[in-house]
Design a protein around this nucleic acid. Structure first.
Length: 370
RNA sequence: GCUGCGAUCGUCCAGUGGUUAGGACUCAAGACUGUGGCUCUUGAAACCCGGGUUCAAUUCCCGGUCGCGGCC
């Protein structure tokens, strides 16, 4: 059994256990930092390891473009190439379907992308997406999916659900590296009936885990959570549930409460690079003048090396002068913050006090600035 | 003392005889979610002073003040 959520909170759908991969156990629920191009921007692998990260996600399509499969293979696989002994997920490139910079066109056969480095066109079929990921050697790989833009008509989303299922079947058939787990991806936007159809189709094909895709692209938070709850209720408890692309502090706590086991998002590092810092009382924009003489640490409860060494005023100053170390410090802190948050969530699930923990967190966490 | 050049948002620069005077940076507010890394959106903010020409001057002319340079 690869997944065992042996602690179940009695008052919510939150659960905790582990996901077993070829590179060890990852405690669930967990949040994966994003290493699209085999690097977390401004944060080293060593730092991730030290803050307790047990798994991150990289992007197979981008690595296929550069440095290319040959080089990763020569290095001895993705783990060896970037020097990480714990678990790795790869995404198929499905998310790049909504990026007009990459996507040229899409039909049932696959998605045609432009390689940004060579300028060449390349059609990524479901089979090819799997072959690329089989070759890279991550522990968990993702099906190629068709992600509709936010705000599309229900018909258009239904078509994406259909195509994603068609591709899921092809991915399952093509998957040949049995050391890797393969997750299917559910689409359907905010439509519960489409989500149901999508999940039922995936369950028939039988994947190692089910991902909820298509969120974090503009929909309202409360609506998303409703649909997530609905999705979780349709997935058998022995399947890990992965909410793709989601990663604000509030969404993590709410997602865990809804029964999600796995998250990933570039949100904490991107907003960190733009001067936003997570605290237990809410997110702050550190560039504001009010922080110029604020010599407190970023978050009163945080023990990361940034909080232990540098004040808000100092990092405010770094941002004002556009010193890159400001981006580095906030990227580190925000990732550390989320790791601590999910660690505490796991602990509270084990002690069956998750509901209290969740409510306390949501009460303290306000989007309003301090 | 003489002479040349210049004077426009907080800063650096455009520009114009006719009330939307433009940009960059700064400042202010917001955004960011399966990552193209100093990002994106929005907002605030200025024609040195006095006179003259003109229907109309930030713009042209004269003088003043200030700044920079040259000459004595």
């Amino acid at each position: 059994m690869n997944f065992n959520p042996f602690f179940q909170d009695s008052k919510t759908s939150a659960r905790s256990g582990f996901l077993k991969t070829a590179h060890g156990r990852v405690q669930t629920p967990f949040f994966m930092p994003v290493e699209t191009k085999a690097a977390a921007k401004f944060v080293s692998q060593e730092e991730l390891d030290k803050m307790g990260v047990e798994c991150f996600i990289s992007n197979a399509l981008l690595l296929h473009f550069k440095p290319g499969l040959e080089i990763v293979k020569k290095a001895g696989g993705l783990h060896k190439f970037l020097n990480w002994e714990k678990s790795i997920f790869t995404d198929s490139g499905g998310f790049q379907v909504i990026d007009e910079h990459f996507l040229l066109r899409i039909n049932d056969a696959g998605a045609e992308f432009r390689d940004p480095f060579s300028g060449k066109r390349e059609c990524i079929t479901p089979e090819k997406a799997i072959a690329i990921q089989n070759s890279l050697g991550a522990d968990v790989i993702m099906c190629l999916d068709d992600q509709p833009h936010f705000g599309r008509s229900k018909d258009s989303i239904a078509q994406a659900v259909k195509r994603t299922l068609l591709w899921a079947e092809k991915c399952k058939k093509a998957h040949s590296n049995k050391r890797q787990q393969l997750f299917g991806i559910c689409q359907g936007g905010l439509h519960s009936d489409l989500r149901k159809k999508s999940i039922e189709g995936l369950l028939k094909i039988d994947f190692d885990g089910i991902a909820i895709g298509g969120f974090g692209i503009g929909e309202e938070n409360a609506q998303m959570m409703k649909v997530v709850e609905k999705c979780v209720s349709l997935i058998p408890e022995e399947k890990p549930v992965y909410l793709m692309g989601i990663g604000s502090p509030k969404e993590l706590v709410e997602g865990i409460s809804a029964g999600v086991d796995v998250f990933d998002s570039c949100f904490p590092t991107r907003v960190g690079r733009h001067g936003m810092v997570f605290t237990r009382k809410g997110a702050l924009r550190l560039e504001k003048a009010q922080f110029a003489k604020d010599f407190k640490q970023l978050d009163a409860d945080c023990d990361c090396f940034v909080c232990r060494n540098y004040s808000r005023a100092y990092i405010h100053h770094l941002f004002k002068l556009k010193e890159p170390s400001g981006m580095r410090y906030l990227s580190h802190h925000n990732l550390h913050f989320l790791q601590r948050l999910v660690q505490e969530a796991r602990q509270n699930i084990k002690e069956n006090s998750f509901l209290k923990f969740r409510n306390q967190f949501l009460k303290n966490y306000s989007k309003k600035l301090l």
